[in-house]
Design a protein around this nucleic acid. Sequence first.
DNA 1: ATGCCTAGTGATACTAGA
Length: 255
Amino acid sequence: MKIATYNVNGINGRLPVLLRWLQEDQPDVACLQELKAPDEKFPEAAIKEAGYHAIWHGQKSWNGVAILSKTEPEETGRGLPGDPDDIQSRYIEAKVNGIIIGCLYLPNGNPYPGPKFDYKLKWFERFTAHAQTLVDKDVPVILTGDYNVMPTELDVYKPERWVNDALFRVETREAFKNLMAQGWTDALRELHPGEVIYTFWDYFRDAFGRNAGLRIDHFLLNPVMAKRLLKAGVDRHVRGWEKSSDHAPTWIELK
DNA sequence: ATGCCTAGTGATACTAGA
């Protein structure tokens, strides 16, 4: 079973790229972030045509998350619990083939310091509290998406340039460590220790051509799920396609 | 240190991304 995560950076603007990748890669489940579209503008027909059921939590202009699945997903949550005043669409969760899958788009948090950075850390705390309710379940759980965190220096092409960026601030890395300490496995790092792996390259200065990237899209597996991990990787070539997102699809294979 | 690029909104240069 193959599960992918992909920050599409505008599901309508990138629809041809998304469909081409789905057609080529045929993941069983695809978690999408940054739809940048309200619910009524989700391209439901095209996704169905491609062979996928879908649930989505959209928002006008920004954010938005979705779970695509070849078998029908059973929605178990939308919106991150813990703050009724938070209206940003950054979390959706479903049970698919007995696996609980949380799809998240963690706030960027720039510029640092400021209210956006504060919001990022608060969102991280709420997410960590929710993750705590899932990690010890006896059913498999996956929390995947755009975490907007480079966990270590190995995950940044030039760490020294990023120390005051919200994606790499010590507070952010500390928050990620606290989350991991609950007992999650970082699937890509687990299978490829010490390897330089990126999932994002910005549009500036030919970052992709220079391989000036970041590893910010992650798969966190609870212990029950981690036992079934077979492979993990990044569909790097998709980033090189015309009109592609600045992220590349990232995936795992499970027993 | 800044802007480099791109999408969305809505019809203008903005915000936001990372």
